[in-house]
Design a protein around this nucleic acid. Structure first.
Lengths: 99, 99
DNA sequence: CTTGTATACATTAGAAACTTATGTATCTTT
DNA sequence: AAAGATACATAAGTTTCTAATGTATACAAG
């Protein structure tokens, strides 16, 4: 969801490729995980979809709703907190001080 | 498992309390999650157990085997990599540069 | 002295979230 | 023409967690 904030709008397959690219193949989002999640987020009002045809192939572009923007900010903050917590728990201070 | 490396040996209930304490209650390890995991790690040779009685209450102290030491180091490294990867993916550089 | 809370183990039912496999269809490259 | 890439989607099975339940001892409060 955070990528959507920066990219404006993306379609499912694009998301899988972008994540793979940005993480050097370390994180692979499978379709079986992604599509149900996108549908669920659309249903709950976090995302909205625009259907477009690229040639004869359907693309479903997803973008954040205002509610989705709020949720992303919140979730990213929570994840940052989690990382800090795990640093304490696993004693990772020195190793990750640079990034 | 990383705590065991620093504490030498710990028993199940102690682990739940220590994690809660170190994370200010943010991470709660439930017994339903912990005990099956400890049993599984013992079975696979990562941990070994020493049973002791504290009064009439049984305590099962777990400590890392040599194999377990190797596994912990590996897993912690993997998790550090994961954090770095997620920083890139979520663009968390500035927020977490200190800790 | 008994009631509640903490310590200490453990299992199980159910829920959640993932992977792998499968399916349909189009487009591009060899 | 065959293979691989693009683009959607669902479903079976596995893993892994939470929540609930169970047993038993120790201790503090009223």
């Amino acid at each position: 969801m955070n990528m959507l904030k920066e990219h404006g709008r993306m379609y499912g397959y694009e998301i899988t490729q972008k994540v793979k690219e940005l993480t050097d193949g370390k994180i692979q989002i499978t379709e079986g995980a992604l599509y149900p999640t996108l549908h669920s987020l659309e249903k709950s009002g976090e995302l909205e979809v625009e259907k477009e045809y690229f040639g004869k192939r359907l693309r479903k572009y997803y973008k954040l709703t205002p509610q989705g923007q709020t949720t992303v900010a919140q979730k990213v903050d929570e994840f940052s907190d989690f990382i800090v917590t795990m640093k304490v728990l696993l004693d990772l201070g020195p190793k990750l001080s640079n990034g």
